[in-house]
Design a protein around this nucleic acid. Sequence first.
DNA 1: GTGGTCTAGACCACG
DNA 2: GTGGTCTAGACCACC
Lengths: 118, 118, 118, 118
Amino acid sequence: MEYEKNTPIYVQIIYELKRRISVGELSAGSKLPSVRDLAEELKVNPNTIVRVYQELEREGVTETRRGMGTFVADNEQFDVSSMKKAFISQLIDEFVQKALQTGVPKAEILELVTKALN
Amino acid sequence: MEYEKNTPIYVQIIYELKRRISVGELSAGSKLPSVRDLAEELKVNPNTIVRVYQELEREGVTETRRGMGTFVADNEQFDVSSMKKAFISQLIDEFVQKALQTGVPKAEILELVTKALN
Amino acid sequence: MEYEKNTPIYVQIIYELKRRISVGELSAGSKLPSVRDLAEELKVNPNTIVRVYQELEREGVTETRRGMGTFVADNEQFDVSSMKKAFISQLIDEFVQKALQTGVPKAEILELVTKALN
Amino acid sequence: MEYEKNTPIYVQIIYELKRRISVGELSAGSKLPSVRDLAEELKVNPNTIVRVYQELEREGVTETRRGMGTFVADNEQFDVSSMKKAFISQLIDEFVQKALQTGVPKAEILELVTKALN
DNA sequence: GTGGTCTAGACCACG
DNA sequence: GTGGTCTAGACCACC
């Protein structure tokens, strides 16, 4: 995993794990790697992973069981596809806000996005 | 001027000044307000304006003449609209990269962006 | 048995066993289930039960007889209700300390506790 | 400030700051000490204070302004007295839950709390 | 083994 | 100056 410079590493890892969950690579109830293992895998300090897991739990994406590990939430209320939508919506809102601030006309923005998507 | 929370103030002011220039509110060769005046006008720390002017000069948007102040560059090569496009392109690239990473189909992304723009 | 999230499982099991003893479900001198059996019954890691039994023995609530198992102590001095009181006193002291620290008047605290108890 | 052993330091500091706010020692809009200053005052590592401030902001109790510091939230919606009530309620709920789990009768619990309060 | 907390100290962006 | 992130490494409670 490569890290983008302007986004905190822990945020990027959160994105990545959410992506894995929403895609089904990690299914509800399955165990995430231990803090130490994931830290090693991602060449990152364990504290950074601790923060990632705490954030994910705070958001209800995962569950932590004492001494047992961190698991993808098995919550009925937790709907993966809605999470995915919320996630992309947030992404889009941030982008649109910044884009409009530049004063570039909407039509042009749309055109450029279309191009970039292909 | 209202400041958006997720973007550094100095970046937002840069946008604003570029906007004023591209719109013609500030024409080529005209003098920009002094650091102190602009700081006061925008209710911002003078250091922030210093940084804005340094950044603008680095980009060739303005010129600083010793003892006289800061002026909009009189440079033929300086093309406001292309500058804006370069900036928005970067914005779009970052966004598209993240958006595609989520696995949401391109068509849907485009649709959501269109909605968000209006 | 359901586990409450904010208290260690082993503590909750200790409560539960003490409860069974004080209620008479487990009488003085009777044999407690083996570590494995209790672990299975309570859907818990055997290590957790080991700790529970160690703790109970340390408190004098149970006795371990080599090769025979763990038994409810046959100790005259062992007074379940006083034990419970000691525990709840500690609980109350901690609570009262924190509650008073908030500056809420005593009368109000008492009223709220009364409500919460019912 | 003395730290109680069984509660994380950062939680105790959060309590303390909330208390100061709810009591009016820190009024809405006022600046909290800088991370480094508070860390020194409380003989604690700066990272611990960072965590405290982040948690408080997440809860809406404070606002962080870039490069300027941390301030008591000036939010109309933020009602100090309701915060105080929410805080004490949480404290009481946790206590009552644990207390009832011990099997001690309600009347007795209430009696003991009354005693402890005086 | 697991996650949670804390210290120490570095580097960064922002105002 | 401010807060934010990250690393390194320690110690703890829990299972």
